[in-house]
Amino acid sequence: MRLFASGWTSVQMAFERERRIRWLAIISLPVLIAAAVGINAWRNIGDYRHGIEIDVAQGASELDYGGAAWRLEQARLIGDGRDTDVQLPGEMRLIIVRLAATAIDDIGEGWGECSVSLTDEAGRRWLPLDVVLSDDLSRDLDPVAEPLDGCGISSLDPPARHQSTVIEEKFVVPATAASELLVHLSFGALRPAAIAFPLGLS
């Protein structure tokens, strides 16, 4: 009789333990699901933030960014016959932007995923022409000079500390937007932080 009672007690204990584990599993399920969704969302938000520019430092002269001091070297508006004789059809204008950078730190791979764009007050965004077309236009405008590299190529070989470089990008924009354009510069690792300079074109 005592043996039977002892066996019955251990069965009861095992049953209770199993019941506790089952409840623990059920209760932990929503917590684990919520944690998985939260971690995934956090990663997606991080990826999204590295794709946008919302923390934009704007300056008229020089700005520190990505281990270098940046300034707007030159902005040209081509197509209305003032800068060169070139007349582009209708509202189409070509804008050539040169940005100069002096490295104040070891940049390494810090300029990866470089992005240069123009924006206007309405939030419209113009991206640069591709490398082949950009080089062709450079040679058309100045057959003697070697075309300058754009941001993408320059980011592969950034200047050493205290050295300088100049990058050039070309954009096609409507004439009506030219006077209010800002040039934006950002790197993947630093986004959503970016810098911007007003082109000051008339």
């Binding site: 209708g90 509202e91 189409m92 419209r124 965004r125 113009w126 096609v172 924009v173 409507p174 009506t176 937007a177």
Partner: peptide, 10 residues
């Protein structure tokens, strides 16, 4: 058209 790029405003 598939070889061209649309620029805002043009």
């Amino acid at each position: 058209l598939s070889t061209k790029v649309l620029q805002p405003g043009l």
